[in-house]
């Protein structure tokens, strides 16, 4: 059974004003995570990546309405009663946030932050939790864990603080970790180090991972499969290596072409046009206005995701463009 099943997820936000029209922030997101699998979600800013994980954690704002199915090990997450939701959040799934400085209470010690969850859920008592935290801290390369436990967040560097977040996430031994751009807020010099620690710990424990990033290279390197999001929709999904080698959706191809290359000093070609949010997308394909291969049908009819082999692609022309797009990557 899959760890996480998301099918045709749709999220609308009611407007704050009484008469305002609701805004669609997630249009159609489907993805699955098998036990121990690492899945990457990539896409430009505003494409709905964070909203998707918030929906999984049931942390959406109160004015959100959720459609489609969200299941953890076959149990519907939106239908979970309070007790199950508390267990789900505290023991089965953990979340690592982008900005540890904002996401950790500045007034409480690191020790409190780390063990608060497992102690409140009754998984461990204080002493056990502190001991487990120390062990984990050593695993992620923190010397002198005892001293760290009594420190406050402002006394730690960003990189160190994000390691604390990783330890917090792993302490309850969850089955799934959701990491929303875990290194974006960090100093460039520590990004790869923190990323290495995260992936190493995840692999060692065979925990499922949902990894959100803008960085397609990084995603392809650390995940088993990928979901590419554009304007609230997963436009392409499949094994990471396949997508990386031969994208089937023009948007994926454009993302691959636009990333800065480490070996060349040439400026990357950015995707023409501005990122579109889900609520701005009209009737047709949301990418049509920016797509070099768009035809009339693309502007009038929204492409449904179609599965062929291991890949699912939402593009009217994905079959005919297969060769062209693959060629673009090699060039």
């Amino acid at each position: 059974m899959n760890l996480l099943d998301i099918e045709h997820l749709r999220v609308d936000l009611r407007s704050r004003e009484r008469r305002g029209a609701p805004r669609t922030v997630i249009h159609d997101v489907s993805l699955t995570i098998a036990p121990g699998e690492a899945v990457g979600v990539v896409g430009e800013s505003g494409s709905g990546k964070s909203m998707t994980v918030k929906a999984v954690m049931r942390l959406l704002p109160r004015r959100a309405t959720v459609g489609g199915t969200l299941e953890f090990r076959g149990t519907s997450i939106p239908a979970m009663p309070g007790r199950d939701l508390a267990r789900f959040r505290s023991q089965l799934v953990s979340m690592i946030y982008q900005d540890p400085r904002a996401h950790i209470n500045p007034l409480r010690t690191i020790g409190d932050f780390l063990i608060e969850g497992v102690v409140a859920s009754g998984q461990m008592n204080r002493a056990e939790a502190l001991e487990a935290a120390c062990t984990l801290l050593r695993d992620v390369g923190v010397n002198d864990p005892q001293r760290r436990l009594s420190q406050y967040p402002h006394q730690l560097s960003g990189g160190l603080l994000q390691r604390m977040m990783i330890v917090m996430a792993l302490l309850p031994s969850p089955e799934l970790v959701l990491a929303d751009e875990p290194t974006t807020a960090l100093d460039v010099t520590v990004q790869s180090e923190v990323m290495a620690i995260l992936t190493e710990q995840i692999r060692e424990r065979s925990v499922g991972l949902l990894f959100i990033t803008h960085d397609l290279d990084l995603a392809a390197a650390v995940t088993d499969s990928l979901a590419v999001m554009h304007a609230g929709t997963v436009v392409e999904r499949g094994p990471s290596a396949d997508i990386y080698a031969a994208p089937r959706h023009p948007y994926t191809a454009a993302l691959l072409a636009s990333r800065p290359s480490p070996t060349s000093v040439a400026r990357p070609v950015s995707i023409p046009g501005r990122p579109v949010s889900a609520f701005e997308a009209g009737e047709g394909c949301a990418f049509a206005s920016r797509c070099p291969y768009a035809i009339g049908q693309c502007r009038t009819e929204r492409p449904e995701p179609r599965t062929a082999g291991t890949r699912t692609v939402a593009c009217h022309r994905s079959d005919e463009l297969e060769a062209v797009l693959a060629e673009g990557v090699r060039a």
Binding site: M57, L59, L85, A86, R87, F88, R89, S90, Q91, S94, M95, Y97, D99, A102, H103, I104, N105, P106, E116, G117, A120, S121, M168
Partner: peptide, 14 residues
């Protein structure tokens, strides 16, 4: 409304 409060809620704290 602080982000760290969302963290705490997301950890299943009562």
């Amino acid at each position: 409304g602080r982000e760290h409060v969302a963290t705490a809620t997301g950890r299943g704290l009562p």
